[in-house]
Design a protein around this nucleic acid. Structure first.
Lengths: 290, 290
DNA sequence: CATGATGTCTGACTTTAGTCAGATATCTGG
DNA sequence: CCAGATATCTGACTAAAGTCAGACATCATG
């Protein structure tokens, strides 16, 4: 009744019927699911036919017919790509956009219905984030981004908020040595964001300095994504980037109030060194030679 | 990027592909999914053909053919029911049981694979329990059970454990006035267990006394099922049962360390009364006239 | 025991999904 | 400009799922 495997399987059953219900509501628009899926993929901004086919796992013949049926309905238009006339691009017509909006409304209604029946929304959402991150673990991609882009700023905001919660004295960015965005862009450094299905769930910064070493800054993993060894993956990627940039010595500072971070560093070849800056927050300092 | 609806939809996408993967692995046994589903329903103890049809949402013609194909494979046997020869019962043959076991192994492997990739198993499982309870909310059934049966004992064990965590002085059942099981069985009282897809997720006891009133005892809702108003539903059912039994006055005791319980009682027609027993744990006492 | 309801089965369909082997047009690299 | 690779399309198929009407046996009820 309580063993982990039957709990997972109970979860599977519950979720299967919820997912089935959404499929059924999609059928209500009088179109087979395959065509609806293609229409929605296009509506969500995928226009390259080959990419959609790959995303939905469709045979080229089937895909071709589905596109034709949507075209016959007047929902999409296709055109050869300018740079390569073999490939085709699809886009919604005005009617197609209306239809796509109707599908979106169904999806949103289902999501809202699910939330509405629960009086502890935040707990439910946190559980969903956790599970989505775990299930989509293999599809998490690390992307180099400008530290001032929207996703990066979101991560940094969450990171600062978490420090505020975990440091007994709180955390005020302005007191910390906030790295200049330029130092975390190539060629001085870089900034990596982990993206899981459009949602940023982690980040790390590699900050170039003029002191013969670079620093690792702002390593953060969303609470929902912890336990997936994403911190490790981000650090590995940051170190690879450092090697590419010809950096041979890395340093970082952290705080003993974040024990999981210290553990990660110690387990991956970093060694503790004396304080090397006067930032008021950190109390632990590490170095790694590449 | 962060609004609740898109978080739910991200969860849906993640889960859809995981579910699809399990379906694909089921196909690996060389049988269409429909037949596999029927075989598994039978393996899980559903034998009445009409019930399986209803559970899987199948047309009677389709169901009949699927049963036949499983029979042709030698995996099941069907027979008319003794009490009603129109209805049929299906059961696995020896070969069918072997095949069912193989499907079980696939399901278990998928569940284990999912758990294995996560280093925080308990958090993942708790999230799954929460979501399964929320999604299956409409299918929670309240059943009258003997307070000494396995499910009831599980609920009570969880209940005591939670009191132990929430009372600053801990909780020792032997010090509390543990109600005699007989007092929580008809005709003196009753004991209700909330079941969600075989998992007990809540309970409440109605305990008869010889003092002109009955008591509500052991109201418990699993952490994963909180926020679904299950406590309210259990209390309503217990009160209905009391009315059926001709009880006109109900009492209960609780503790101010369980504020959500007090809130529930106050919001449903209970009024606070002075202490009416010498149990060392409660410090709040309520009464309700039916 | 007649009547209507119920549960299962059968035959004859349709729709959806998916597969496969070419045909055609276009691109890339030598 | 040619050869091979690539992207799409078309026709001809199969398998799976589902629908529907009617046949048949059995049951519950008056």
């Amino acid at each position: 009744m309580l063993d982990p495997v039957s709990r997972v399987r109970r979860f599977n059953r519950a979720v299967t019927s919820a997912v089935g219900a959404l499929d059924t509501s999609f059928l209500g628009r009088g179109r087979p699911l395959g065509a609806a899926r293609v229409l929605n993929a296009i509506g969500h901004g995928r226009s390259d036919v080959a990419e959609i086919r790959d995303y939905l796992g469709l045979d080229s013949g089937l895909m071709s017919r589905l596109l034709r049926s949507l075209e016959d309905e007047g929902l999409i238009e296709t055109a050869a790509r300018e740079d390569d006339a073999r490939r085709r691009m699809a886009k919604l017509t005005r009617a197609g956009r209306r239809e796509f909006t109707a599908y979106e409304a169904l999806s949103n209604a289902q999501a809202e219905g699910l939330l509405a029946q629960h009086s502890q929304r935040e707990a439910l959402l946190a559980a969903m984030d956790l599970i989505a991150s775990a299930l989509a673990r293999e599809r998490v991609i690390l992307e180099e981004m400008d530290p001032r882009c929207e996703q990066a700023r979101y991560c940094l905001g969450e990171y600062y908020a978490e420090l505020g919660r975990r440091f007994s004295q709180g955390f005020d960015v302005s007191l910390s040595r906030d790295p200049d965005a330029r130092d975390m862009r190539r060629p001085r450094g870089t900034f990596l964001v982990a993206i899981s299905d459009t949602l940023p769930i982690g980040c790390v910064g590699l900050k170039g300095t003029d002191h013969g070493y670079a620093e690792i800054k702002r390593l953060w993993v969303a609470p929902a994504a912890r336990g997936l060894r994403l911190g490790r993956r981000l650090m590995d990627a940051a170190e690879s980037a450092a090697r590419e940039l010809g950096i041979t010595l890395l340093r970082l500072d952290t705080n003993s109030a974040l024990p999981e971070a210290g553990q990660l560093y110690r387990g991956t070849g970093w060694r503790e060194i004396p304080r090397f800056n006067d930032d008021p927050y950190p109390d632990l300092f590490f170095e790694k030679r590449l």
